[in-house]
Design a protein around this nucleic acid. Sequence first.
DNA 1: CATGAATGAGGGTTCATTCAT
DNA 2: GATGAATGAACCCTCATTCAT
Lengths: 207, 207, 207, 207
Amino acid sequence: MISKEHNILFAAEKLFSEKGFEKTSTREISREANVNISMISYYFGSKENLLVSLFDMRMAESQSFLDEILIRQDINEWQKISLIIDRYTSRVRELKVFYNILQTEQLTNKNEQIIKYLKNSKLGYLKVYEDLAKQGFENKIFKLRPNIALLHATLIGTMFYAMNGLPMYKEYYKKTASDTTFDDNYYAELNIHIKQVLKNLLGYEEN
Amino acid sequence: MISKEHNILFAAEKLFSEKGFEKTSTREISREANVNISMISYYFGSKENLLVSLFDMRMAESQSFLDEILIRQDINEWQKISLIIDRYTSRVRELKVFYNILQTEQLTNKNEQIIKYLKNSKLGYLKVYEDLAKQGFENKIFKLRPNIALLHATLIGTMFYAMNGLPMYKEYYKKTASDTTFDDNYYAELNIHIKQVLKNLLGYEEN
Amino acid sequence: MISKEHNILFAAEKLFSEKGFEKTSTREISREANVNISMISYYFGSKENLLVSLFDMRMAESQSFLDEILIRQDINEWQKISLIIDRYTSRVRELKVFYNILQTEQLTNKNEQIIKYLKNSKLGYLKVYEDLAKQGFENKIFKLRPNIALLHATLIGTMFYAMNGLPMYKEYYKKTASDTTFDDNYYAELNIHIKQVLKNLLGYEEN
Amino acid sequence: MISKEHNILFAAEKLFSEKGFEKTSTREISREANVNISMISYYFGSKENLLVSLFDMRMAESQSFLDEILIRQDINEWQKISLIIDRYTSRVRELKVFYNILQTEQLTNKNEQIIKYLKNSKLGYLKVYEDLAKQGFENKIFKLRPNIALLHATLIGTMFYAMNGLPMYKEYYKKTASDTTFDDNYYAELNIHIKQVLKNLLGYEEN
DNA sequence: CATGAATGAGGGTTCATTCAT
DNA sequence: GATGAATGAACCCTCATTCAT
C-alpha cells in the first residue's frame, strides 16, 4: 500500500500540472489523494512546502544521471551529449506532468528553495556542456565552439516548447489523446531534430 | 490623460507578469491603477475577461507585421525569415512583461479565447515558415526541407528560454539589473544564434 | 440607524467580555452584530485590530475627564480625589463589560497598542495622584505622604476586585442578577470604602 | 525522574501564564513538556481538565495554611491577620505564574470546577476575616468593624494589582527583570502597605 | 456613468482529540 | 500502558463580484 504522504505528493503533482499551483486548492488535493485535508499540513507543513517537497523528490531522482554518463570512458563526447539528450527527452516525456509545473514555476515562482533547484540544475548542465564542448573541440571531434548558454537554451527551449505543443499538434492532425504511436514518432523526430541542431552548432560530422 | 480602462490594463499586465494571474488580486490591480476596485468588473466584466482584453490588445498589435514582410518583393526568403526573427526578438524583448504572461497561460490556462489566440498565432507562423521554406527550396536558396513544427519549436523555444534565463545569467556574471548594454549584447548574440540555427536547418548558405 | 461598524464594535465588546477574546470567534461577532462575517475584516482589518479599535474608542472617551477635574479652582485636593473616585467608579460600573476586557488584556495580552494604552493610562493616574498628594500635603490638608504606586494599586485593585466579586456576592445573598437596588447599595458602599481607605493613607481628616 | 504527568502540569502552568489558556495549544504544551501530544488527553482527558488538574494541585497546597494559623493560641487576632498577609504575599509571589492564571480564569472562565475552587477559597477567607474581626473587636484589639467583603477586596485587589504592575514599574525605573533586590524591596513595601491599610480599616493601634 | 459598501463562497491552516497499534 | 498517525471541525481572512445610490 502506497503511503498517504506519497498519495498527496502524486495528487498534488497531477493537479498542479493541470490547473497550476494557485488554482489548485488543498481541498482538491486531499480529495484526489483520498486523505483528510489536514494531512497536507500534517505531512508537509503548508501547501507551499508541498510544492517544494515535490521538487525535492523529482530533482533528487535526476541528480545522478549526468555523472553516470560523464565518467564513461567507452564513448566519445558526441556520444555523451547524444546520450544526455536521449535520457533527458525520455525523462521529460515520462514526467511531463512535473516538467509542466517546473516550467510554470520558472516563470512565476518566488520560492527560494525552488529557485535554488532550478539554478543548480541549469548550472550543472552548463558545466557539463562546457566541458564536453571543450574536450570534443580539443579532440577534434567538434569543429566549432558555440555559446554554451545559447546552445542550452536551444536544447531545453526546443524540448519544452515541442512538448507543450504536442496536444495542439495532435488535435490539429485529429489524433486522439491516447494515440501513443503518434507520440512515439513525435518524440523520435524531436530527438533527431535536437541532435541535428546540436551537431550543427558544435560542428560535428558523422563519419 | 490616459483612460482608467488603459490604466487598469497596464497595471494588470505588470502585476500578472510579476506575480502570476492567480496570485494577483483585483484589489492590487485597482491600487496599482489608482482606480476603485469595482471598476475592473465595470469595464471588463471579470478578472478573467481582463486577461482576455489584455490579449486582445497585444495580439492585435502583432497581427499585421507578418503580412507586411511577406508581401515584400525586394527581399528573398531568407531575408524575410531574418526580418521576422529581428522583429519578433525586439517585440518579445520590448513586451517581455506580456510574453511572460503568455508563456504562463500557455502552460496552465484553460481560457478558450486565449487558447484560440495562441493557436491562431502559432498556426499563422507555421503557415508562413512553411511557405517560405517551400519557396526558398524551390528557388534553390535553401537546400533542406526541415520539419516546420520543430523548426518553430526551436525558434520560439530558444527565444523564450534565453529571455527567461537572462536575469539569472546577469546575476551569474554579477551585472546589475539595469545594465542595458549587457542586455543589448545578449539579445544581439541571441539573434545571431537563432539565425545560425535556422540557416543550418534550412541549408542556407550565405554567398 | 446605528452603523454596521458600531454594531460590530459593541457586539465584540459584549462577547469579548463574556467569553474572552480568544474564545470569541469572528463568526459569533458577525452573528451578534447582524452583519456578514467579512465585514469585520472589511472595517477593522483583523480580529486583533477590532480589539484595538475597541480600546481606541473607550480610551478616547476617558481621556479628558481627569483634566476637567484638575483645573478646577473651587475645590481642594481631597475633593478632587473624591471626585475622581466618583467618576471612575461610575464609569467602571457603566462600562463593566469593557473593563472586564481591559483587566484580561492587562493579564495576558501582548498587543503593543493595548499595552501602550494601559501604560499611558496608569502613568496618567499616578502623575495626578502624585501632584494632588504633594499639593494637599503642602496645603496641610493631608498629613501623610504615602507611596503613590501602592495607593493606586489599592484604589484600582479594590474597585476591580469588588466589581468582579459582585455576581458571586449577589448569588451568595440570593439576589437576582437584575436587582439594581442591591447593586446601587453595593457600589455606594464600595465608594465610601475606597474613600475611607484613601483618607487613611493620605492622613486626611474631615473637619 | 519527574513523571510525565508532572512535566505536563508544569509546562501548562508556565504557558497558560505566559499566553493565556486559549492561546496555548496542546502541541506547545507537549513540546515544552517533552512528551507526545496525545499524552495530554491520555493523562488528563482534555485540555480543559488539565487546567482543572492544575487548580487541584495548587489549591490543595494552600488548603491548610489558614487553619494552622487560626488554631494558634500564642498570638492575638492582629498577629494572625498579619501572619496571613505574610504567608499569602510570599505564596502569591512564589506562585506568580499560577496566580496569573487564576486571575484570568476569575475574569473569563466558565468552568464549574474552577468557579467552585475560587468561591470556596474566597468564602474561606471571608469566614476567617469575619471571625478574627469579631473576636478582635470583642477583645478590644480592634476599634472598628469594617465591611469584610470590601476589606478582602482591598487586600486581594491591592496584592494582585501591585503584583501585575511590578514589571511595568521596574521598566519605568529602568531595572532589569532579574533584579531580585528591587523585587524584595517592592514586596516588602507592599506587605507593609497592606498591613497599614488593614490596621486603619480595623482600627488597630500598635501599642 | 461611476462608486464603494457589502456580500457569500472559499482559501490555507490549526485545533483538540481519537484510535489502531 | 503508551504512542503517533490521522481526523473533522473550526479558525481567521481574502477573494471576485454585486448593487443600491
